[in-house]
Computed example of a mutant assay.
Amino acid sequence: MRATDVLIDGLGRISENVHAVLDDVDSEVLNRAPAPGSNTIAWLVWHLSRVQDSHIADVAGTDEVWVTGGWADRFGLPIPPADIGYGHSADEVARVVVHDPGLLRDYYDATHAVSVDYIASLADSDLDRVVDTNWDPPVTLGVRLVSVVDDDAQHIGQAAYLRGLFS
């Protein structure tokens, strides 16, 4: 098995969990916080999708699906289009309200498809390419992609917990 196949498998598991969390969830549960200032399922799935989208676009040298697919307009969130949710305050988290779980699922699916296509195009040796020199040691493509899988796995786990808590 190639390293890129492992990364694609990891993203596939996240995709399955995104679908499981969003299937048959209602708007109230989607946007309900367990405590004031806490993340919601809507914010968590939006954020993990935005992080994956922005990081893949960055390393692939392409535009984000959020923009090219018109998702920023479809969501109509009162936040800047470049916002991915990193470092959001409680007030900013509260601005991410999504009434249609299908919209979240479709955006994640579009991001997932682009991500898988990009990773499938790579040779394992491509994973050694340095993509960020702001860290010591510099971040390679492989490390960045593992970081995306790790971040997404944590956030979808949090969303699954909330789904169970509110069901």
Rank of each mutant, 00 (worst) to 15 (best):
L48R: 15
D9E: 07
W46F: 02
G164D: 09
L127G: 12
A42I: 00
P34M: 03
N39H: 12
A153Q: 09
L141I: 12
L77S: 07
H112Q: 05
S121I: 03
Y108G: 09
H99Y: 15
S125W: 14
L103F: 03
N17Y: 04
A159R: 04
L145W: 15
S147C: 02
R105L: 01
L165C: 06
G12K: 14
V148W: 01
G85S: 14
S121F: 07
G76P: 00
A113K: 14
E92F: 07
A153W: 12
G10F: 02
L22T: 08
G142R: 05
V29G: 05
G85W: 00
I156D: 09
L162S: 07
V18S: 11
A94F: 02
D124H: 05
A35V: 12
L141N: 10
V98N: 08
D73Y: 13
D63F: 03
V97L: 12
G102A: 14
D5K: 02
N134E: 13
L165F: 08
Y107R: 14
S15H: 15
L22K: 10
V93K: 00
E28Y: 15
M1C: 15
I41E: 07
P137C: 05
V29Q: 14
G10S: 06
S38P: 00
S27R: 05
G87Y: 08
R32L: 08
A110S: 12
T68L: 10
G164E: 13
V45Y: 14
A3F: 09
D91N: 13
F166G: 09
F75C: 04
